[in-house]
Structure formats: C-alpha cells, structure tokens
Design a protein around this nucleic acid. Structure first.
Length: 594
DNA sequence: CTCAGTATGAATGGTAAA
DNA sequence: TTTACCATTCATACTGAG
C-alpha cells in the first residue's frame, strides 16, 4: 500500500481541480536541489522555516553546521526541537505558534529545565569546536555534544550506556529526559516527539508558496481544535510517556479472529472518536519506538497487531491503528484455506516429507533468482535421497528466505504473481495487463494489504453504512482497501485515492470499471495535493468522508531493507506524517461543519 | 530508457543454555 | 540475569541485455 518507485511520470489527474494546477513544481526545482546547486542563505533559511522550525533555531543550526550540509542542519534542528520545541511558544508570538503545524501535536507543559535548555541552546557560544570533536572516538563525540546541549557528563554517559554508542543524539537526549522524569515524582510529562515536518526529503518539492497557503489554511481551521487538544493533553499524567515500550502480543491475533472469542469493547480516547473513522496500517516489526510514536500521533490508540497467517496461507505481520468498533466483525466468505498444500495443490505431489512448512513467510517485493533455484536443484541432485541433513538444512533455509514452493522433482520455484494475488485476497489478474511488467507486479503486490485481514476489521462498517461510504484512501497502492470494502458488499459512493505510482492508479481505475462501480473515483498522485482547501471543497461537495484509510510507506521500517532502514523519519516512511496531517485536517473540517 | 537478474546484512524478538 | 544462537523481514543498488 504505498509508493512504488520514483520513476513514474507525473500525469494530470482525471479530476480537474479549480486552482493550483500550475504551481506543481518538479523535483528539480525543489529547495533541496537549489541548495545543492549553490549556497544561498535566504533559501536555506526559508527552507527550514517553511518546515516549521523556529527562525532562531534555524539561524543557530546553520551557523553551527555551515551552509553546505543540509542533512546535519536538519539533524541539529530535530535535536533542538525534541529538547526545546515545547518551550517555543513561550518565546514566540501567538500567530507564529499556531502557525507551526509541524510541531509536536502533543502540546505539552513547560518545565523550567526545558527553558534552561532552550535558552542555553540559543545563547551559548562556547560549544566545543567541531574539528576537535571529529578526532575523538564516537562515544566521546556524542558525550561532548550532549554536554554542549546542557546535560551533565554523568547523565550523558549513563544515556550512552543505556542506549548504546550508536544511538542518535536525539535518542540519547530523549533517554536523559525520560530518566529525569522518572526521578522526579512530580515531574511534568513532556511529550517527546520530533517536530512533524512535512518536508523530509520525500515531500520537499512542495513549494514554499503552497506550504504557506497550507499553513494559513491550517491556522484558520485548527485554531480552535488545537487549543482544545492542547488542553486535553496537558491534563494527561506523565505516566503516558513512561509506559514500557510497545510489546507485540503473542499470538498476533489482534482483538480476535473470526469464529473465535474476541475482545469486543475498548475505550477510545476522546480525541480519537470519529467521525470520520480511520484505519492506519504498517509493518509490525518496525524499529524500536516507531509504533510508540505512531500511536502517540494517532490519538494514543493501541495498535492492533495481526499476522495474516490466520487469514491466509502466508504470514504478514502488521499493525493497524483504527477507531472502528469491534463488535460484530465478520469475515469475507469463502474463508481462504490456510495451508500451502491446500492453496497450491500442484505442489503437494512434489513436497518432500522433510519439508515441514505448511505456511509461507511474508510475501515481499522481490523473488528468488533462477540461479539460486538452480543451485538448490544441483545440491539436491548431488545428494542422497532423502538428502543429507546438511543439504536439507540449506534447502529449507533458502525456501524460507525466498518463499519457494515445490514444482517438480528437486525443483523449487518462487510464487507466480497470480498466486501472490490469490494469497493476498485480490481477484485473479488484478495486477495483470495494462503494460505492467512482472517485476512491477511483484513490487505492487508485495506492498499491499492482505484483503481478508483488512476486510475483517472493516466489516463493522456494513451495518453502520447501509447506503455506502465516502472513502479517503491514502497510499492506495493497488487498492487493497477498495477491494476489501467492495468484497464486503459496501457501496463506494466516493473514493478519493492518493497514489504516487501511475501503474497502481491504472490498476485501481481498471478494477473500478471492471466492477462497475457507480460512485466517483478521484485519483491524485501526491498527498501534498490534499491541502486544507481541497479537502474542504471535497468535504463540502460530498458531505464528508466516512473512512480515512491508508498504510504509509514501510520502506524505511521494513526489516528486509539493508540500506535505508532509517525509521519513521526516513525519506519514504516519514510520509506517515502526511497521513496524520490529512486525517487531522479532515477531522477538523468535519468537526466544524457539524 | 525499461526490465530482469543478482548480490547485498542488520535490526529485532524469540528461545534456550549458561 | 546474561549470553548465545536462531528465524524472520510490505527492500536497495548495481549490472547488463535489449
């Protein structure tokens, strides 16, 4: 359910908006690129201001890091924000304060300590020189940075011991704060979070003008909502922030499985209650702290951890945060078989006794190469029958790693795209045709929902909306949400679908036509297009959204990413903040009109 | 340019032994 | 309680053919 590749051309939407069509900027014109082209202080300055950072912070961060390194400036700003952003409002005029939508949504109380940190950050000119630091071991560098930031050497050292020398300065600062809070029985909780900057790299092509307009819109819309919410959060006890880190329940069955005993009641925080309903999805096994952060943004709702192996023959460990009721869920029929041998009967004939797998591992975006399967074939040919334990071990490890199935004597193969479609609950040939390549099918499917799992959670909507729903679907991918809702027999009166990949948009649109949908399908290619204006006009025209659904990009969270598993702040995964931004805007706009 | 093929670990959590 | 070992994982980057 997310973004697939960067190589999709921008095309015009099928829906023509009344404004703003021409100030879409190409990535080449992004502020980021402009920076790389040559140093220009005003542009750099306004770039970060545009992201919602305070001007004093930006000035200081640029001074400290030099103009050249955007990356380190950003890191510095994030660090400042994590430590001191909550005090910002104390130093700023009201307008600016409300104007900073990217700031921590959990408005927090202010302690004198934090004031101290912030003042110190702004005023101290006596920090150690960076050249000197570079010559030191990593641990000492971090230690000095933390001391520079106003922490005591003891605190800093303890934090490095706790979190490890490879932790970011931000994490270390966070840890020290947590420790301080724990020591202080009456300490006021502070809502740790990085500022919600929309413009991590992935979204930085939003023009400054657009951003300003968006901010104006937000300021207008959010003034009342924000003050209300801040009030709510300040009331919360510091306990909320000292909770043990998120633990993934075992077995991973969420609030319950079909035809089994389920949890049917829960208490949602006031701020979480709809309309609209919302449903957010991402990988369960994200780096530490990611789900804590996501949950905190999504109104403190506890994630529902579910492994789709309970719904189909392949594992898919995912977490879902939603505000849907839990009573009277029902599954899609027919219930899919849950073993490989049942689902792929042709494999049964060749399946050796010593391969005890009955289910597949997670369906991913890449498949095993022919070379690998041939190596395995050779290994089996050259072994005895049954193969030696050593060969068995090797073969089984590769089978599990690459989800291989038996298609002949000594012959293993990856799943076909059709089979992946079937396992994920999509109609046959859902991703086939329209010029899509085989690799792209795997990629789009690997990023998708498991339809039966999602449909089970969404089934409660059927009774509530007998006349159908208006759906806002973000990071739609190949339309897992739309397919699930359609299979549940819920009419789709309106679907606003945001998906970066043109290939995926085509898939959804042809599905829309094949299933003879009566409603309106509006597809957009960029979440940034959904600003306050557009949402307001859509909501006015169609009477609001009943469900906001989406699974934001997991690229930087997924375990299989060897290169850029950067967490929630990663280039793609930071689009989560756009999910939150849009959901919050929808809530505010709909809350106002009712 | 697209497409297919290929090599490329580490973070995380579980379990059992020390 | 600590340590070691094991299994799993919505991926990225590069290459070469067409």
């Amino acid at each position: 359910m997310d973004w697939v590749s960067d190589n999709d051309e921008k095309d015009s939407d099928n829906f023509s908006w009344d404004t703003d069509e021409n100030d879409k900027e190409s990535p080449a014109n992004s502020p980021e690129k402009a920076l790389e082209a040559g140093p220009s202080q005003p542009s750099l300055y306004s770039h970060f201001i545009g992201m919602g950072f305070h001007r004093d912070m930006v000035e200081k961060a640029i001074k400290e890091n030099g103009e050249g390194n955007v990356e380190t400036i950003l890191e510095t700003l994030l660090t400042y924000s994590a430590i001191g952003s909550n005090t910002l409002s104390e130093h700023e005029d009201v307008l600016e304060c409300e104007d900073a939508p990217e700031r921590n949504p959990v408005g927090c109380s202010v302690t004198s300590d934090e004031d101290f940190f912030y003042d110190d950050l702004l005023d101290s000119d006596d920090s150690l020189d960076e050249d000197f630091k570079e010559g030191l071991p990593k641990k000492d560098q971090k230690l000095l940075t933390l001391v520079d930031m106003g922490f005591s050497p003891e605190e800093a050292a303890a934090a490095i011991d706790r979190c490890g020398v490879d932790s970011s300065v931000l994490e270390l600062a966070d840890s020290i704060h947590a420790a301080q809070m724990a020591e202080e029985p009456d300490g006021t909780g502070w809502g740790y979070s990085r500022p919600r900057f929309e413009a991590a790299e992935g979204s930085s092509y939003c023009s400054a003008r657009k951003k300003r307009r968006l901010m104006e819109e937000k300021r207008r819309l959010k003034r009342s909502c924000l003050s209300q919410r801040r009030g709510d959060y300040v009331k919360r006890s510091s306990m909320d922030f000292e909770d043990a880190p998120m633990v993934i329940p075992k077995p991973m069955i969420g609030f319950g499985l079909p035809y089994e005993k389920c949890i049917t009641r829960r208490t949602l925080p006031e701020a979480a209650i709809g309309p609209p309903y919302f449903y957010y999805e991402n990988v369960a096994l994200a780096p530490k702290g990611v789900w804590d952060t996501i949950s905190r943004f999504l109104y403190d709702i506890e994630p529902e951890f579910v492994d789709s192996k309970h719904f189909c023959a392949a594992a898919r460990k995912r977490a879902y945060i939603h505000n849907l009721p839990l009573e009277n869920r029902f599954p899609l029929l027919p219930i899919p078989a849950k073993t490989i041998q049942e689902v792929l009967p042709v494999t049964k004939r060749w399946w050796p006794k010593w391969d005890h797998r009955t289910q597949l591992n997670c369906l991913q975006t890449c498949i095993a190469s022919a070379k690998l399967t041939d190596r395995i074939r050779m290994a089996l040919e050259n072994s005895s029958d049954p193969p030696t334990p050593r060969v068995q071990e090797y073969v089984l490890a590769e089978c599990r790693k690459w989800n291989l199935v038996w298609v002949g004597h000594h012959k293993l193969a990856p799943l076909e795209p059709d089979e992946v479609e079937m396992l994920l609950g999509f109609p046959n040939n859902h991703t086939r045709g329209g010029g899509i390549s085989r690799t792209d099918r795997y990629k789009s499917l690997g990023n998708s929902f498991q339809v039966d799992t999602v449909a089970y959670h969404l089934s409660v909507l059927k009774r509530m909306f007998p006349n159908g729903i208006n759906l806002l679907s973000l990071f739609s991918g190949i339309g897992g949400a739309e397919v699930a809702i359609q299979k549940l027999g819920i009419n789709l009166n309106l679907v606003v679908s945001v998906e970066k990949s043109k290939i995926n948009r085509n898939i959804v649109r042809s599905w829309w036509e094949e299933t003879r949908q009566k409603g309106d399908l509006i597809d957009l290619d960029d979440v940034q297009q959904l600003n306050g204006d557009r949402l307001e006009s859509l909501i006015k025209r169609y009477g609001g959204f009943d469900l906001v659904i989406g699974g934001s990009p997991c690229n930087n969270l997924a375990g299989s990413n060897r290169h850029t598993r950067d967490g929630l702040e990663g280039q793609h995964s930071s689009l989560f903040y756009d999910y939150f931004r849009i959901l919050d805007l929808v809530k505010c706009i709909m809350g106002q009109s009712s």
